[in-house]
Write a protein that binds this DNA or RNA. Structure first.
Length: 264
DNA sequence: TTGGTTGTTATTAT
DNA sequence: AATAATAACAACCA
């Protein structure tokens, strides 16, 4: 599922293929566009040149020398590049295709229709779309995060997944982070010791850094919960204890009952 | 055929 | 007011 490291990969991908390139034409599935029609999007982007794309949380903002395109990848979104000569054919789930004047097509593919594509005409409109997001989970400093925790009550996993609290962490990453930091997902934030808060902060930074650098989170060599989650009879990669399964904020949650004891 | 999956939003409850 | 729980959305897979 696209979480922060995946979207950071999409940012680099977009940059590698579209930076400095000019839009010749756009074709779009209206079902994936938010607040703009395919025709209006085509008019807004025609002849525009892409500038440096930026990311906050799971959102990607692709600026041109005019308006900006914003992407959210939902649970199944990705980018596909098709070179001018011999690239892959268009696919039924390619919801948006940017045909570039210099050759090639950059496609936004999304099997389902969660997520979407927005058009913003200026910085103010971009800010409006991203207004509810908390600070980016990878950009936030340790002391900023500790301060955020001071003002948050309730379950720790629910907070990590709350995009308005901190942006970029989804269900899979949250489980991995809490397992690595040895904190039970349902621990109340008020009950976390300052040592645990520090450990949580450091773990977020370390896991996100490795995930972003590895380019492919699933290939990370370090022991991770994500390597075994979902397997029948899954055991903790650290101690071999059978993993426990529960539901938090409506999402399946795996944790090690031995490494992550529940302290009320 | 049914249930499970996941990110976000909306709604309702605490 | 803030947090929690739940359903809804979409579409595939087992």
């Amino acid at each position: 599922m696209p979480e922060l490291p995946d979207v950071e990969g999409f940012r680099r991908f977009f940059r590698a293929h579209a930076l400095g390139k000019t839009v010749r034409s756009v074709s779009a599935d209206p079902a994936i566009l938010r607040g703009v029609t395919p025709a209006a999007l085509g008019r807004a982007l025609h002849g525009r040149r892409f500038e440096e794309p930026s990311r906050v949380g799971k959102w990607l903002t692709c600026w041109t020398d005019g308006p900006a395109l914003l992407f959210h990848f939902g649970m199944t979104g990705s980018f596909v590049w098709s070179a001018a000569d011999g690239g892959p054919e268009r696919h039924r789930w390619d919801r948006l295709t940017l045909v570039l004047a210099e050759g090639g097509e950059l496609r936004y593919r999304n099997m389902r229709k969660l997520g979407g594509v927005w058009l913003a005409h200026d910085q103010h409109e971009v800010d409006d779309i991203l207004a509810t997001l908390g600070p980016d989970a990878f950009a936030v400093t340790g002391s900023q995060f500790i301060k955020l925790l001071d003002h948050r009550r309730g379950g720790v996993k629910a907070a990590l997944m709350d995009q308005s609290f901190i942006a970029g962490i989804g269900n899979i990453l949250a489980d991995d982070i809490l397992w690595q930091a040895r904190i039970h997902p349902k621990r109340r934030i008020q009950t976390l010791t300052s040592e645990e808060r520090q450990r949580l902060s450091a773990t977020i930074r370390s896991i996100l850094r490795q995930a972003v650098e590895s380019d492919d989170f699933m290939l990370l060599k370090r022991p991770r919960l994500g390597q075994v989650r979902g397997e029948p009879g899954a055991a903790c990669p650290r101690c071999g204890t059978p993993l426990a399964r529960t539901v938090t904020a409506g999402r399946t949650t795996y944790f090690c009952p031995r490494c992550q004891p529940d302290i009320p």
